[in-house]
């Protein structure tokens, strides 16, 4: 009897868990969809100039005409935020996927080769991770003229380390399984074993790492721009918007800081929510627990 109630409790607990998951999944997916649609559709559809300066309308608080208010040059902040998000998302997505590509290649090579190659590569990764990566990023950015691509390169080159570690660990654990032994015994070359049997096994983890990296890369872009090292000031990005609004915040105008800040935080939370659901799905331990 006690067993039956325990099982029922477990089931209903599982059901609540699943429904909160679904809710989280829906909210996150909706937020991401709105963000992506706004970024893709607003610039071609809304024929307003985000750079249009109107000094007569500078630093207006939020109103119906300007839902997010205007900045110190009278530019509409909603429009500026959307354009800024566009640049920040572009930097985030491209940098995150480049970083994941580098990380997967390095991690898979180290894991699949093993031995001294693995030790050398992973010590190199340890060495690089011991340097604060914002510092390393600043160093890379400083080598180029300000622009979008130097920021992408800087973020990509400093963020593959964690992916390399994750992928290597996965490859190492997969490598010792009998099905890899069977492939080797069947005459598969090292390349074939890596590409056909090891990499498909680590792709879900690498994909998760890539998705989680997108908001991180956006934050880095903002940090670099805020420090005045990333994008040039006239290019709207969330970082340059926040940086430009610093002065007016002290004068009591909160809107030029708040809205770009929210635009940075909301996609981050949405991606984190989505990644959480994904992680639960690909976690084989959780899955086998459910099958019992």
């Amino acid at each position: 009897m006690a067993d039956v109630t325990a099982v029922q409790a477990w089931r209903s607990h599982g059901a609540t868990r699943r429904s909160t998951h679904t809710l989280r999944l829906r909210v996150s997916a909706a937020l991401i969809a709105v963000t992506v649609l706004a970024v893709l559709l607003v610039p071609p559809l809304v024929r307003l100039d985000q750079q249009a300066v109107d000094l007569a309308a500078k630093l207006l608080p939020p109103s119906w005409a300007h839902p997010f208010g205007t900045d110190d040059l009278g530019r509409d902040l909603l429009l500026r935020c959307v354009y800024g998000l566009r640049v920040s998302l572009l930097v985030g997505v491209v940098a995150a996927f480049t970083a994941t590509l580098i990380g997967t290649a390095v991690g898979a090579t180290a894991g699949a080769l093993g031995g001294w190659a693995d030790r050398t590569v992973m010590r190199l990764v340890d060495t690089l991770s011991s340097v604060p990566h914002l510092l390393l990023g600043i160093f890379v950015v400083a080598m180029f003229r300000p622009g979008v691509w130097p920021v992408v390169i800087s973020v990509a080159l400093t963020h593959w380390l964690s992916t390399a570690r994750i992928v290597r660990a996965e490859v190492l654990s997969l490598r010792s399984r009998p099905h890899i032994d069977a492939a080797v015994s069947g005459g598969a070359s090292r390349w074939r074993v890596t590409v056909r049997h090891l990499l498909p096994g680590v792709l879900p983890q690498a994909g998760l790492a890539a998705v989680l990296m997108v908001p991180h890369a956006m934050w880095h872009e903002s940090a670099l721009s805020f420090l005045g090292l990333g994008l040039p000031t006239h290019t709207a990005s969330l970082g340059t918007l926040i940086q430009g609004a610093r002065g007016s915040l002290l004068a009591g105008q909160w809107w030029p800081t708040l809205f770009p800040g929210l635009f940075l935080i909301i996609p981050t939370l949405a991606v984190a929510g989505l990644a959480g659901v994904w992680r639960e799905r690909i976690n084989p331990r959780r899955r086998s627990e459910l099958m019992l």
Partner: peptide
């Protein structure tokens, strides 16, 4: 057999 077959 479970472990010696590639699940994919």
């Amino acid at each position: 057999p479970r472990l010696s077959a590639d699940p994919r």
